[in-house]
């Protein structure tokens, strides 16, 4: 009798867990690989009925895949992708507008302007320059203090930067230079910079990692990666050019046509919470919810003031034109140096 009861209870329990089996949500992301686990864990412990299945790649690649899969979407949601990319997707009619509960607590510039927003921002990632002390000394390279400094002949062959076609960090650099210096002077600046660039890398992290490994003394990258590598013991310092730092938002959105709309909305609701913003703050000094951010080690405290006044709409609308122009000018012109 007792045994029967136990078996029955077990059966009930089994059915119950079966019924509660978590919904698996496919989320495309360009977050850094070392952030994925903590983000998924934080979300899933708050929402045990949804499980995140990450698809991670560089900004350019994830954007390309989303566009390629437009007619047969594989993603339910996007989290941690550049706002400029999400604006492109919005233009293609691929985003499902949704107003997450509590979205009004975010800074207005971190939320899509529409009545029912198509995307919400999470944090800002900011350009910076990684500078290897040891190698710089060997080659007699002064610490650059401005973007214009980097065009000086002394840096020739000692610079790497990300290719804006694949890297979101690369694109925010290019877009910011064009905004700061104006179209004409911006391209002129990049022409000069191109003379010094050893090569353009696929990802935005790589220039900083190369600087950290001494492979190339100076890498144009972003602050989070630099701070991380300094914590790891790399002999690098971060430089923040005086003309202002380009930046982009990491943002989240629901992909139109997802058959897991409830779970996707749960993710959006979570992405605007204070807990989530605190988590973003672990890597980024500027987050969407005002008053949450605490200083991040190895970041300058005034980084928000150093960021340029970024026009995302402009950066998104002109994205394909700028990338095409960039490719025409620098991608293939790069003759072998030897």
């Amino acid at each position: 009798m007792n045994l029967k009861k136990t078996l029955l209870a077990a059966a009930v329990a089994l059915t119950a867990t079966g019924a509660q089996a978590a919904t698996e949500l496919t989320v495309y992301t360009a977050l850094e690989a070392d952030q994925l686990k903590s983000y998924a864990k934080a979300f899933e412990s708050a929402n045990p009925d949804v499980k995140i299945r990450w698809v991670r790649d560089s900004t350019g690649i994830i954007t390309a895949r989303l566009l390629a899969e437009k007619d047969n979407p594989q993603a339910d949601a996007v989290l941690g992708l550049a706002a400029t990319s999400l604006l492109v997707l919005k233009g293609e009619g691929m985003l499902q507008p949704y107003k997450p509960a509590g979205v009004e607590q975010l800074s207005t510039q971190f939320v899509d302007k529409d009545e029912t927003p198509s995307w919400i921002g999470m944090d800002a990632w900011v350009a910076s320059v990684c500078y290897n002390r040891i190698e710089a000394e060997k080659h007699d390279l002064p610490m650059p203090t401005s973007w214009k400094d980097l065009t000086k002949p002394v840096y020739q062959g000692h610079l790497v930067m990300p290719n804006p076609n694949s890297s979101g960090t690369g694109y925010l650099d290019v877009a910011s230079w064009l905004q700061t210096f104006g179209e004409e002077d911006g391209w002129k600046f990049m022409d000069d910079l191109h003379q010094n660039i050893d090569r353009y890398t696929h990802s935005g992290s790589k220039p900083c990692k190369m600087a950290a490994a001494g492979e190339t003394p100076i890498g144009i990258s972003f602050a989070y990666r630099g701070a991380k590598l300094i914590n790891k013991g790399a002999p690098i310092d971060l430089a923040f050019p005086s003309e202002g730092l380009g930046w982009d938002m990491e943002a989240a959105a629901i992909i139109k046509g997802s058959d897991k709309m409830d779970a996707a909305k749960t993710l959006m609701d979570w992405a605007v919470t204070k807990d989530a913003n605190t988590l973003y703050n672990g890597s980024y000094a500027v987050v969407a919810m005002p008053g949450v951010a605490k200083p991040v080690p190895n970041y300058p405290s005034d980084i928000a003031d150093r960021m340029i006044d970024n026009d995302f709409e402009w950066a998104a609308v002109n994205r394909s034109r700028i990338l095409k122009e960039w490719q025409q000018r620098y991608d293939g012109k790069s003759e072998p140096k030897n």
Partner: peptide
């Protein structure tokens, strides 16, 4: 590069 970077299939 064309496919992943330029989204130009």
């Amino acid at each position: 590069k064309q496919v992943v970077g330029q989204q130009n299939f």
